[in-house]
């Protein structure tokens, strides 16, 4: 069985962190993956110093996309905008702890893409 469905990913599916819409956001982005219909909405609150004070998401999609959203958003809380913008595919794969492979990479990267576009 693929190790793509490790317990820690499934745990983020069962108990997604920072799921929902937080108050007083100043940045928002909707992204979708046309082939499978993965959808993600990210809500961000940044402060005057460019730090991410609050972040949350809502969405619908496969385990990889939704677990990635929960894990990546948990990781960026309190980080600076520039740190998040510097994150790339390798960072996401590192956080997920699994190599999604070429076919699922788009699913894994959808949340980071949404964050990047929200912050730009």
């Amino acid at each position: 069985m693929s190790d793509m469905y490790r317990d820690h990913l499934l745990d983020h599916i069962r108990r997604p962190r920072n799921h929902g819409v937080i108050e007083n956001t100043n940045l928002y982005r909707h992204e979708a993956n046309p082939s499978c219909g993965d959808v993600i909405d990210v809500y961000l609150r940044t402060n005057a110093d460019g730090l991410i004070e609050g972040a949350s998401f809502t969405g619908r999609g496969c385990v990889i996309s939704q677990a990635s959203a929960s894990i990546v958003i948990e990781a960026i809380l309190g980080k600076s905008k520039s740190t998040v913008l510097a994150m790339g595919p390798k960072d996401v794969v590192g956080l997920l702890g699994v190599e999604p492979g070429p076919m699922r990479m788009n699913c894994a990267l959808l949340p980071l893409a949404a964050l990047h576009k929200a912050l730009c």
């Binding site: 046309p34 499978c36 219909g37 993965d38 999609g61 496969c62 385990v63 699913c107």
Partner: peptide, 29 residues
């Protein structure tokens, strides 16, 4: 279970199917 996860677990067992919107979004949705 999301369709992509079904297809992935089947693929891991050597079974090739298609999942998703099949380039026919209005109908699949």
């Amino acid at each position: 279970v999301h369709s992509h996860d079904v297809a992935q677990i089947l693929a891991d067992q050597g079974i090739a199917v298609r999942a998703g919107y099949h380039c026919a979004a209005p109908l699949t949705r």
